[in-house]
């Protein structure tokens, strides 16, 4: 029954349907674009330590870590020198 009714649409009503269709496609394209912007927002919305970077406190942490590391390395170098000395004494 529905099939028959649709077939009878003509003239001004048909134009109406066309405008509705155009409106709908425009709307769907618009919503798709909005979706895209949302995706773009999502990809940058992954929380990173931006704040820590901005106020510069991260440099303090890195400075501390590098200082500790260099201290350990200096100890290793001293150990290396000591062993070299022992080797020279023995031979």
């Amino acid at each position: 029954m529905d099939h028959n009714v649709e077939n009878k649409v003509e003239g001004p009503e048909r134009k109406n349907i066309l405008t509705v269709m155009i409106k709908r496609t425009l709307l769907s394209i618009l919503s798709f674009l909005i979706c895209l912007t949302l995706f773009a927002q999502d990809s940058t919305a992954v929380p990173m330590a931006d704040e820590l970077r901005k106020n510069g406190k991260i440099y303090v942490v890195v400075a501390v870590i590098v200082t500790i590391f260099i201290g350990i390395i200096l100890y290793l170098i001293r150990l290396d020198r000591k062993i070299s000395k022992l080797e020279n004494n023995n031979s």
Partner: peptide, 23 residues
Amino acid sequence: LLVYTLIAGLLWNNVPRLPQLNE
């Protein structure tokens, strides 16, 4: 190389922003 690793590895802002892993 290790000092470079520590400084660039902790500071260089070139890591991808990944969910769950983050920083």
